[in-house]
């Protein structure tokens, strides 16, 4: 009986060298099954002609990678270009636009809470709901926007239906939806700058521009870098709002990389090609992720 007890509690004994692993066990199992092994499998799949519905997978080396860059429709390159276009519009807008918004809300003396709520509120709404709300507003015939544009004499626009405007419209909707996060991070960064620094500068005769340039910007530099990198990484992974607002159209002018990968993998069931696309995306993102690592100091206490 006594022996039985000892055995039963052997693992729970703190002196047991395996005891710490008990805490790790649940997470580590999940990590191996859903992160570590899939990373290796994904590399393997990307080297196979792997169709979910066709013949069994066949090893093809690196030709999936070659194919996505050279196939005649050039859809992957095209969606890469579109993604870059989205990033070119969205990243500066998010980085600079939300900074100005945060500075304004930080400086205003009344209704701070109301402004904060207004700009952050859309963030808690899911991507499908915000897309539907905006589709309704942008609708070329019944939409609110064209009605008011018509009142001031503008011709009706089909913003989401035209190649020249569709992507920029997606950028605008994305900003409306996602401004809350960078806005709040900036705001808390601004609130950490001691007021005495501004007071001292004022006594020395500095104007608002000098204060901004010589105090706010340098002290916000880490925050700025953090937001920039976050936004770049986010922009290259944009999917939901594009998928619902335009579905990649018109004429593939808003088809983005993740959407192209989604369609390749889950509409055409070409798993090998889709996996190869994911690795190309990884190669683009890794540069920015590494910068993020440095900003975040991910590895800082590695040698603890």
């Amino acid at each position: 009986m006594a022996r039985n007890n000892r055995r039963k509690y052997f693992l729970l004994n703190e002196e047991n060298p395996l005891y710490p692993y008990l805490y790790l066990l649940p997470y580590l199992t999940l990590f191996i099954i859903f992160i570590a092994l899939p990373i290796l499998e994904s590399m393997r799949i990307s080297m196979y002609d792997w169709s979910l519905i066709g013949p069994p997978p066949r090893y093809v080396g690196l030709s999936n990678y070659e194919y996505i860059f050279t196939e005649p429709t050039e859809l992957f390159l095209h969606s890469l270009k579109n993604t870059v276009q989205y990033a070119v519009g969205a990243v500066p807008l998010f980085v600079v636009g939300s900074l100005f918004l945060a500075i304004a809300v930080d400086a205003v003396k009344r209704w701070k809470g109301f402004f904060q709520i207004s700009f952050v509120m859309p963030m808690v709404i899911n991507v499908a709901a915000i897309s539907i709300i905006w589709i309704w507003i942008f609708d070329p015939t019944t939409g609110l926007l064209n009605y008011y544009a018509g009142l001031i004499g503008l011709p009706p626009q089909n913003l989401l239906g035209h190649e020249e405007t569709a992507m920029w419209t997606i950028v605008a909707v994305s900003f409306w939806w996602g401004v809350g996060f960078p806005f709040l991070v900036y705001l808390s960064g601004l609130q950490d700058i001691p007021q005495t620094m501004y007071d001292a500068a004022r006594i020395d005769g500095a104007n608002a521009w000098h204060c901004f340039k010589d105090i706010t910007l340098p002290l916000l530099r880490p925050t700025l870098l953090f937001i920039s990198v976050m936004q770049i990484i986010g922009a290259f992974q944009v999917f939901g709002q594009v998928y619902i607002l335009t579905g990649g159209g018109p004429y593939d002018s808003t088809r983005v990389v993740v959407q192209h990968m989604y369609l390749t993998g889950f509409q055409y069931f070409e798993m090998g090609l889709a996996a190869a696309m994911a690795w190309v995306l990884f190669c683009i993102l890794i540069v920015f992720t590494l910068i993020q690592f440095r900003v975040f100091r991910f590895g800082e206490r590695l040698e603890y």
Partner: peptide, 8 residues
């Protein structure tokens, strides 16, 4: 990025 593990 999450897209890597998506398919496996």
């Amino acid at each position: 990025p999450g897209q890597i593990t998506l398919i496996p």
